[in-house]
Structure formats: C-alpha cells, structure tokens
Simulated assay, not measured.
Amino acid sequence: MVREVVRINVLVTSISKKVPLLQAVRRAMKKMGMSGILIGADRNGNCIGKYFVDEFWPMPSLEHFTVEEFISICRKKQIRFIIPTRDGELPFFSAYRQVFQENGIVVMVSEQHAVDICLDKLRFYEVLSAHGFPVVPTALSLEELNDGDYVVKERYGAGARTIGLCLTKEKAHRHAQKLEAPVFQPFIPGIEMSIDLYMTRAGKAKGAVARKRDYVINGESQITTTIRNEKLEDLCIGVATYLGLYGHAVMQVIIDHEGQFHLIECNPRFGGASTVSLEAGLDSFYWFLLESQGVNLDDYPFNRSLKEKRQIRYPADFVIDL
C-alpha cells in the first residue's frame, strides 16, 4: 500500500505585494530543509504576491470564517504554520491562537491581550506610561495636551496613510474630522527609528536590531539603515517583555535633539522594511519555524552582523512565460 506523503506547508496571509517577505519565508523553509510549499493568501485575486508563492489562495476576509472553517481549510491544504502580515487580521489569529495550536497549527502571533494593547494607540500610551515607559502622550482631545504642533492619527490599527504631521491646533482639528476615531499626540522633531525584535515562546528576547528610517513614503521606510544603539534596543525589549509579545514585532521611536527616546507605537508583526534586520542577523522566520517544531532556540544564537546594512526598496520587473 502506498502511503500518502504529508507535507508541512506554510501560509502567509495578506501577501499583497510583499515579495521580499515571501522570499525571506522561503529561505527560512529551505534552511529548515522543509519539503512543504509556500502558500500565499490575499482577498485580491490579482495581487502581485501570487506570482511568488507555490500556491495562491484567494482568501475572503476573515469575518466570513468561523475558526472551525478556517482550520478545516488548513487541514485540506496541509498548512502547519501561519504568518499573518496585516494588523486587521491579528485580532482573529490572536483570539484563536490556542485553538489553532490544539489543532496542530502554529501561528506567529502574540496573545490577544498584547495585540489589543498594540492596536489601540490610546491604550498603548495609558498602559505603558503607567509602567514608566517613555511613551508619546496620546489623547482624545487637543485640550489634554500642551500647546505646540500636533500629530493626528487613527486610534486603531495602522493608519500611516491618513496621519497628519506637524499640524497647528486649527489644522489638527480639521484633519481629525476626516478620521474615524482620531487621537492626538504632540509633534516631536527628531530621528525616526524602527526597532525589529524577536520574542521567544518563553517570553525572552532573542535579538533586536535598530534602524534609522531615512526615507519614508506612506508610513513605510523606502530607505532604512541599521545602527547599533543598545540603550534603545534594551528599551524596546523591555516594552515587548512587559507586554508579553511573541514572534516578530516592530517598535517605532523618535530620538529627539537631546537624545531622549519617545516611544510611538508597536506593530506586533513583521514590518514592511523588516527584511533588512534579517540581513543583520535577526533570523525571525527561521526561529519561528524552529520553535514551532519544539526546538530550543538556546542552541541557535543571534549572530548580529558586524557591518551595518542599508536597504533601498524599489520596484522591479518579473517576467514569466505564458
């Protein structure tokens, strides 16, 4: 009797045009010696990413699924690992993280309470400031903040495309009327930083890489340069540890002209420009796959690159035969 070969497949959701991310996951699978395939999902059936995966799943929005239905599809597709890449789907996967685990599917997502805090900018400020972390003050009205210039953004999830920066009080009021649930922050001039880190299942930091956001378009770094700043990395590791994050996360911080840190937000997922931190030694996808198969990461040290890395993100052509 011929036995059916069971593959161990990896699902990446909301792949959009995240080609470097997909390539990084594929490299991690190859490094693991995995025989499974890379499956990409997106509700846009014409997304760019579909050409860079082994199988494309035109997945409807998660609101159309019960967790049982989603797990049933994963079983049919022999999916054992899931990597969510969009803020909007993190609540679903975090809420059912344990249910997936009980069904033999591991999701790279933090627990629900941590995700909820990170996706609510007001709560993020309230929780972390109460613990003494240097978080940028966040309020529901301008009257709660000191005079100066302001930042206006959506309270929930990622809203970089709709953010208003360095606005007067009058302009801030006007900008807020365009948003669904606006929050206000003081505008703090300085250097924009992102800090990528990986937190293990045991709640310990495996490594962190700080990088300067040299050139930003629509909230994403098009040019970013890694730097060494242990104090900044330690701060972000402290925040991630306090929140109980798991897997890859990205902190956003402003370093003001006096060298003080101002924590803006945390994205509890892999970021758009986080692939440069992989090049610097933060092997997040490989570590995730190792941990998911019960491997102790103590035997896999974080080897930080001796040279700093600069990443330039640019459009490229990919031609296929029809």
Results as ranks from 00 to 15, higher is better:
V5P: 05
N9A: 08
S16P: 00
K17I: 13
Q23T: 02
R27E: 15
A28E: 07
G33D: 09
I37Q: 06
D42W: 06
R43I: 04
N44T: 07
K50V: 05
M59C: 14
H64Y: 14
V67I: 10
E69I: 07
I71S: 08
R80S: 11
I82H: 10
D87A: 11
F92D: 09
A95Y: 14
Y96H: 15
E102K: 05
I105A: 02
V106H: 14
V109G: 11
A114V: 05
Y125N: 05
E126A: 03
A130Y: 00
P134Q: 08
N146R: 04
N146A: 05
V151F: 02
A160V: 05
P182N: 11
F184H: 01
Q185H: 01
I188V: 04
S194D: 10
M199K: 09
K206C: 15
V209C: 12
S221W: 05
T226A: 06
L235S: 01
G238N: 01
A240H: 00
A240F: 01
L243C: 09
E265F: 03
C266Y: 00
R269I: 03
D283S: 15
S284Q: 06
D298W: 09
D299T: 14
P301D: 09
R304I: 09
L306F: 07
K307V: 14
Q311L: 15
